[in-house]
Simulated assay, not measured.
Amino acid sequence: MSHEVFQLMKSMNLKKLEIQLAIQCAPVLTGIKISNLLIVHNENSKYVMELFQDTEISFFILCVTREKTTFLIYRSTELISYLAKPNVKELLYRLGYQNQDVQYFLHSLRDKYESYMKEGLSFPHELGLALGYPVEDVYGFIVNKGQNFLSIGYWKVYANVLEKQKLFDQYDLAKEMTIRFISNGVSILEIIEMYHKKKLQRVAF
């Protein structure tokens, strides 16, 4: 993160929901990542649902605790395409998902994630697939029990380190750009719309 953006963040109210969205979800907001987790205080959960209700970004509640709500913020078409890839489907099958309908997957993942958060049961590694992580890294994390990774950034990397570092750099730039926008009064909805228009322009040409 650049010094300038770091200074911007120091002057911002980091509890403000739009700042939290910029920090936690910038790659999704700008269209370069399939999904992100968004964790907010329960008092803000209704606002999150209203914010994304009429946008191309979907939300799914993974867990509600006494104080906080965990959302999966995702781009539906991209997530469906990713989960339909043969190697992703194979890993999901090995993790017990014989029915790989996206809604079934999300509801089953929610059950497991809530059990992990509230009862201390085993962590559902398929969350990495819901977040669009490369399947080789999700599998590598499972078989290595989180150890022996080659690099670490937004997730632990087990293959293609240079390629993943380029991705992480893009995510960092998206975060900086989003923070700059918000500091200049641009809203989250306006950021989403800017990306949407750029996507339509690419399709048109």
Rank of each mutant, 00 (worst) to 15 (best):
S2M: 05
H3K: 11
E4R: 08
F6G: 07
M9Y: 10
K10Y: 08
N13H: 10
Q20E: 14
A22S: 10
V28F: 13
T30M: 09
G31F: 13
G31C: 09
I34G: 04
N36F: 10
N36W: 14
V40S: 01
V40K: 08
V40D: 08
Y47F: 15
M49I: 02
E50G: 08
F52Y: 07
F59I: 11
F60N: 04
R66T: 15
T77M: 09
E78K: 12
I80W: 00
Y82Q: 06
Y82T: 04
L83W: 04
A84N: 12
A84G: 03
V88P: 07
K89Y: 13
Y93A: 07
Y93F: 08
R94M: 10
N99S: 11
Q100P: 09
Q103F: 15
L106T: 02
D111K: 15
E114H: 07
M117N: 04
K118F: 01
K118E: 10
S122F: 14
F123A: 08
H125D: 04
H125A: 14
H125Q: 07
H125P: 02
E126W: 10
G128L: 03
Y133G: 04
Y133Q: 02
V135E: 09
V135M: 05
G140N: 11
G140E: 15
K145I: 02
Q147D: 11
N148S: 12
F149R: 03
V157T: 07
Y158D: 07
Q165G: 00
S183H: 14
E190Q: 09
E193I: 00
K197H: 15
